[in-house]
Design a protein around this nucleic acid. Structure first.
Lengths: 248, 248
DNA sequence: CGGCAAGTTGAGCCAGGTCAACTCCGGTGG
DNA sequence: CCACCGGAGTTGACCTGGCTCAACTTGCCG
C-alpha cells in the first residue's frame, strides 16, 4: 500500500525538476510537507506582507518571478533580490531593520512551507538538506555579485551584467545560446539595477546602436557580440585607444 | 577516559563564544574537525587565493576582519562583503564568473575547515547545523541589505548606514551604546560602500560639521544624534521643509 | 479605434568622480 | 631629540554620468 503523491505536487516544478528541493523528498515527506503548507497563485503586484511572512517565513517559488522590495523613507523603492523557479526563500530571523516585502512581478506560483515540517525534513534528509543549502549559498553569491555590480559599476555595465545573467538562465534551459529573456518590466529592471527607467532605456539603445544586441521583442534580446558584452559587464572600459597611448 | 579539547581551540573565539559554530560541537567532533583543519594568522593584505579556496572552501573567522574582494577588468576594486568573528565563509560552488579573493584587512585569525568533516558534522549535529545555517542566512541578509544600500542610496546615506551597522556590532558587545568602531581603513571603507576615499572623507566631515557624530580617534566615532543619523541612513532626505508644502 | 500604461527621447543640472596638492602622523636613523 | 620620510587621510577645482522633469511614441486591451 503505497501513499499517493499529492495532486498539487504532481504538476509542480518544485517536484518535477530533479534539481529542486521537493524532488529530493520521499513520498512520505512530500505528503507531510504538503499537508501543512499552502500553495498560492500571485499576480503582478501581489505581496506577501510582513505579517504573512512572520507566520510563513519559508516560501518556495514554483514559477514566475518574485522580488524582495525595499522602500526607503522618502519613497524611493528598490528591488533587493529576484527569486525564480526553484528558489527557496528562507526569511526566518530576518532583521527588522529592513522593512521589506516579497512582491510578485507578474504571474507566479509559490508554495509556503510549514517551518516545522521543513526543519524536520531538512534535519533528517541529507540529500534535501544539501539541495536547499546549495540554493541558499547560490542566493548569497548572487546577492554578493549583485552588490558588487551596484557599488562600482556604471549603468551600462550593470545592464550588460544583467543581460548576461538572463542569458545564463536561458542557457541552463538548453535553448538558443545567444538569446536572453528579460523576465521583468523596464521599471522593475531599473529598480533592480538601481538606475532610472530612462537610463535603462538609453543604455539598451546604446547597446543596440553599437550592434551588440538586437531586440526580438521588448522582453527578448539576441546577443550578437557576446565577448564585447562580457567585456562591458566586467568593467573593461577602454576609454579611448589613443588616450591610453599618450597620457602615461 | 574523556578526550581532551585541542589546545588551539581552547583559546579560540569560535569555540569560546557560545553563539559560534565550534561551541556547538561535542568534544569528539571538535577533535575530528581540528585534526583535519588548519588555523592560520593573517596580516593586512594577506590573501587566500582562488587555488587555496578550491582546496579549502570553508573558512571560519576567529578574529579580525576579512574581505571578499572583486577586481574589475580595468583595475577598479571593490569589497563585496566583510566577514568578522564567528562568520563561517562557505565558498563551495562559488561561480567562477566572479574571480574574487578573500583578503584580510588587518591582523586576523582564521581556521580553514575540512569540507568533509564539516559536512559530516553538520549532517549529524542538528544544533551545529542550525547555527551555521543561521549564520549563512545572516550573511545573505547582510548581502541583500548591502546591495540595497549600494543601489539607491547616495554617499552620505551609505556612510550613515555603515556607521549604524558598526554601532550595532558594538551594541552586542554590550558597551557604550553611542559608540561605533570603524574596523577598517578609509580606503577599505570606501571600496566597501562603493565610493571614492575622498567622498568618504567629505561625508564624515559633513556629519561632523552637523554635530551628528564626533571623532574620538580616526577609527572611533561617538554618535551624538542617533535619530538623525538613522533618518539619513534610511534615506529620509527632506529636501527643504517649504518645498514639501508648496510644490504639489 | 480610443484610451491608458509602458517605454522612449530630449534638455538641463548636480552629486560624486578625478586629479593634484596638501596635511597629518607614526616610525626610523643620525 | 629632531629631521626626515612615506603612507594615510583631507581639501580644492573641475568635469561628467546619470537623475529629473516633461513631452512624446508605442504597444496592449477592451
Amino acid at each position: 500500500m503505497e501513499s499517493q503523491i499529492p495532486t498539487i505536487c504532481k504538476s509542480c516544478t518544485l517536484h518535477c525538476d530533479s534539481g529542486n528541493f521537493c524532488a529530493r523528498l520521499t513520498t512520505d515527506e512530500l505528503i507531510q510537507l504538503n499537508g501543512r503548507s499552502q500553495s498560492a497563485s500571485m499576480k503582478r503586484g501581489d505581496a506577501l506582507s510582513d505579517e504573512a511572512l512572520m507566520q510563513w517565513p519559508i516560501v518556495a517559488v514554483s514559477s514566475g518571478v518574485l522580488s524582495l522590495q525595499h522602500l526607503m523613507a522618502d519613497g524611493r523603492k528598490s528591488i533587493a533580490a529576484l527569486y525564480m523557479q526553484g528558489d527557496i526563500i528562507d526569511l526566518r530571523g530576518i532583521s527588522n531593520r529592513n522593512r521589506c516585502n516579497l512582491i510578485s512581478l507578474g504571474n507566479s506560483k509559490v508554495c509556503r512551507l510549514s517551518p516545522e515540517v521543513f526543519e524536520r525534513v531538512v534535519s533528517t534528509n541529507t540529500d534535501a538538506q544539501n539541495t536547499v543549502w546549495r540554493n541558499l549559498r547560490e542566493q548569497t553569491f548572487r546577492a554578493i555579485d549583485h552588490s558588487v555590480d551596484m557599488s562600482k559599476k556604471q549603468a551600462l555595465e550593470k545592464l550588460a551584467s544583467f543581460i548576461i545573467e538572463c542569458n545564463h538562465r536561458e542557457l541552463s534551459d538548453a535553448k538558443n545560446t545567444a538569446v536572453a529573456k528579460i523576465p521583468v518590466r523596464r521599471v522593475d529592471l531599473a529598480e533592480y539595477i538601481g538606475v532610472q527607467p530612462e537610463t535603462v532605456s538609453r543604455c539598451f539603445k546604446d547597446l543596440q546602436d553599437r550592434g551588440i544586441i538586437t531586440f526580438e521583442k521588448l522582453s527578448v534580446v539576441t546577443i550578437n557580440d557576446v565577448s564585447t558584452l562580457r567585456e562591458i559587464a566586467s568593467g573593461d572600459r577602454q576609454p579611448n585607444p589613443q588616450k591610453t597611448l599618450v597620457a602615461r
